[in-house]
Design a binder for these strands. Structure first.
Lengths: 223, 223
DNA sequence: TAATCTGAAATTGTCGGACAATCCATCTGT
DNA sequence: ACAGATGGATTGTCCGACAATTTCAGATTA
């Protein structure tokens, strides 16, 4: 029986890959920080080749940037880059929401989507940043999965949502309630099977997010 | 003076990377073909580590697929995958066209766009598949560049347009004229600075492409 | 003192070798 | 003909080595 492992689950490079992404969310690594290969080799107890492979994967996804003969660094989004990314996410998430709405009736989709939304809306999960981040990721991932567009699913992780999440984490305490209403709106539209409506709901949500980020002070942007 | 090299231009892995992409367009590699590391090491005269890094980059972009303990293979799009990809490209290209139209007045954008379109429309370049493919790539790349959305530019090459281009190359002789009209429509809308119009023109073009592909026989799809 | 130059240390880029794990095709015995 | 054993081919991973380049502290100079 051949092992069916996804690209991220496999061996040593995967350990490093996941370790770094996880470390990002846990605050062990912060945007701008240098990632020295020798250190990673020691920390994760794998060969330099594996470290290298993990780094180049992360670079391909845009999470770290690699300059020739310089250490890789955790990428830090500038104001302009953030704006670009938000504009792109508006389009992509709108597309994903529309697809999800169109397929809500198939299989166990409705049940899965409901589950993801329920845990996201649970005040219990909202107490802890890590729990909330995970629930939100699950929500979006479910939405994309239900949409069943293989290529979209492949491309989504290659946007830098994670960076946005982490880089502005300190500033997100403002309007939690408003955002929860957004999520509810998106979910309801998807549950209704209203593709158009879901698309605009998702787009509007991202646009509001972009507006909020625009108002952030320069200190929130590293480079 | 620090060398300013882009991710694809750098050293040995870049040689392999570009060699394979180029080989794809030249027909040296065909979808489904196995890529044995030892062979590539010999052909490109670089270390296995570099070959490995190039392969994982290509895998990250979706051009080759890597299975555990099996050779990497040039990916072959199934009918469903192609449909998904086309639907995604419709959204992304629409976005790119809109952005380009909105910024056509800035700097040398108008001139560059006109140039790209002119060489694309030149009957001379349309005679040879390789020339035409290159001109079309330039056309789209210019459009994206003018749009000036850094994240979109980063993400576009990670779609599998190249695969579509190559895999269905044998079947594209049908409606060249119709497609040239499409390009003209897109270009005109961009030149007018009409964002909405450019978006729908690009979307319609991709949709027509998708319809054409839908009518292709099963033989066109490998896996 | 401040700016500049210099050289050593740190770090990455690349290669080659080595070995285990696994897959694949072939062979073998029934 | 078919199930299982077997060996070659290929990948996954690590290690060591060396050149190229950057980085930084200390020496030199205006």
């Amino acid at each position: 029986m051949p092992k069916t492992l996804t690209a991220k689950t496999d061996g040593s490079p995967g350990v490093v890959y996941r370790g770094i992404v996880d470390g990002l969310y846990r605050g062990r690594y912060v945007p701008g920080q240098r990632l020295v290969e020798a250190d990673l080799t020691r920390d994760f107890e794998v060969g330099r080749g594996s470290v290298r492979e993990a780094l180049s994967r992360l670079a391909a996804e845009g999470l770290v940037s690699m300059n020739l003969h310089r250490s890789a660094t955790i990428r830090s989004l500038s104001r302009a880059e953030t704006r670009d990314l938000v504009a792109l996410l508006e389009v992509l998430n709108g597309f994903a929401a529309r697809l999800a709405a169109e397929r809500i009736e198939e299989g166990v989709n409705r049940k899965q989507m409901a589950e993801a939304y329920t845990t996201l809306a649970d005040p219990e999960t909202q107490r802890d940043f890590l729990h909330f981040a995970r629930a939100r990721n699950t929500f979006y991932k479910t939405m994309v999965a239900i949409g069943a567009n293989h290529e979209l699913a492949r491309l989504m992780p290659r946007t830098n949502v994670d960076l946005i999440r982490v880089q502005f984490r300190a500033y997100t305490t403002v309007d939690d309630d408003l955002r929860m209403e957004d999520y509810r709106g998106i979910y309801d539209a998807i549950a209704e099977g209203a593709g158009r409506k879901a698309e605009t709901a998702a787009k509007n949500h991202i646009r509001r997010l972009g507006d909020a980020i625009d108002k952030l002070p320069d200190a929130a942007f590293g480079g």
